[in-house]
Design a protein around this nucleic acid. Sequence first.
DNA 1: AATCACTGTTTCACATAGTGAAACACTTAA
DNA 2: TTAAGTGTTTCACTATGTGAAACAGTGATT
Lengths: 259, 259
Amino acid sequence: MSTITSNRPQNGSLVKAFALLEFFSNQKKQWGVRELSRHIGANESTTYRMMATLESLDILYKNPETEKYALGLKLYELGNRVDINASFIHLTHPELERVALEIEETVHLGILRNNKVLMVDKVESSMGLRLDSSVGQMSPIHCTGIGKVLVAFGDNMITSFLKSYDYVRFTEKTIINKADFDKELRKIKKQFYAIDDQEFEQGLICVAVPVFNKKNDLVASLSAAGPSVRFKKDSLLEYVSILTKGANAIQQNIGNYKI
Amino acid sequence: MSTITSNRPQNGSLVKAFALLEFFSNQKKQWGVRELSRHIGANESTTYRMMATLESLDILYKNPETEKYALGLKLYELGNRVDINASFIHLTHPELERVALEIEETVHLGILRNNKVLMVDKVESSMGLRLDSSVGQMSPIHCTGIGKVLVAFGDNMITSFLKSYDYVRFTEKTIINKADFDKELRKIKKQFYAIDDQEFEQGLICVAVPVFNKKNDLVASLSAAGPSVRFKKDSLLEYVSILTKGANAIQQNIGNYKI
DNA sequence: AATCACTGTTTCACATAGTGAAACACTTAA
DNA sequence: TTAAGTGTTTCACTATGTGAAACAGTGATT
């Protein structure tokens, strides 16, 4: 019933197959052939043939006991080989440029990966005194603006991942225990931005806001960072509003992607 | 040229499309339509239509500058929603059962996830004095048999992930610096198994061996763990040979999966 | 035992949907 | 200008996927 507004050639079977896979991805339960064909409003024998094919490719997994289907390992394998930066950055980069132009500080986009913050994109400040951080770098969670935002607005599970020995002291200001960190997270959730005031590196301040997709899943965090000599209390809130504007623009560009 | 030996109904376009995606996943470079169609020996206009469809679904990503294709974000999204345990464990579990029966200790299967060891399956020892660990639990890398095996036989990159503050001391025997750990890894690579002799928990010994897939990618580590009072020097080597036999059997079952 | 309400699977006549050689419209380099 | 490379579109053809219906099981309920 849904119409794709596009003049490009379309391979119908492929569209159907991926619609089926996406249906599976939005469901935690395992489905049988008939049951599923009714739910997605497709012919049962077509659905059966599609699923049989996908199963033989290990894209779908057929539970040997229940004979019901779930997403298969091959899909996991393929998904793991996607170079996220290749496809994600071009959706976000222009907005980073815009924000950097307005704030005149180095702007970062970071995500959570391997229990660390992974910087996926940045735009350097044009000013002389620059922060040298590079894309692909892993940073700790508990003492960076991006890290704190990602934990504050992410799944609750993530907090429990942080063990006591993860709270490494980097500077005098680093938060080094769960109680203080939880308090900080509550504050961040209220004010909708996080500040790292020299908690990771002396003389380095950073403001970060959450970036959501259109489904309101947290996907990344956008931050501006610079030397403490330039960051003043009153400009901070201005930065937050610019970053938030940028995060909203990114939200429009990335659609429903969940990184 | 490859023939699928199966009597189940097959949807040809689907098979072709996933062959194309798999081709992409084995290549780091980005491909153009014609270039690619030649490489996979398919008709160019068919390939074009397929890629156009996959791109509109965001399964493929078209680099706006070069107009070449790579795997897209939607595939990443789908891959992330696969419940690995559902499809992986049933391939490995029977072998764990077999090994546990022979060794009479708790047997674990673990993978690397979020810079920690994630236990994906276990079979409990039938003996009275048991080790209570559960599937889904995250354990540190540097002081567990499974962790050490996974790092020793995995990508070199992984070693560099471990920062100085990751070497947390758990017992007197825990290895707490990179130099000693690197030495340990070299030893493990030579002997093809790792021992954790009370490095994580006092009184707990564990032997682990690598599990490879048919392509010889490291996919997991198989271990037997028990109280130090039961683990003796001469039985250790016997355990190693039983575990290795088990790992080989798993290798046959899991085919080319790369977890 | 017999009916019912479900499954997954197979069949087969039919026409739709995917195919591929060739032409087209570009860009870049010689 | 020519040549060699792109990506894209066209269109006649038939192979390919379709779907209603039948088949073959299973497990409850009567």
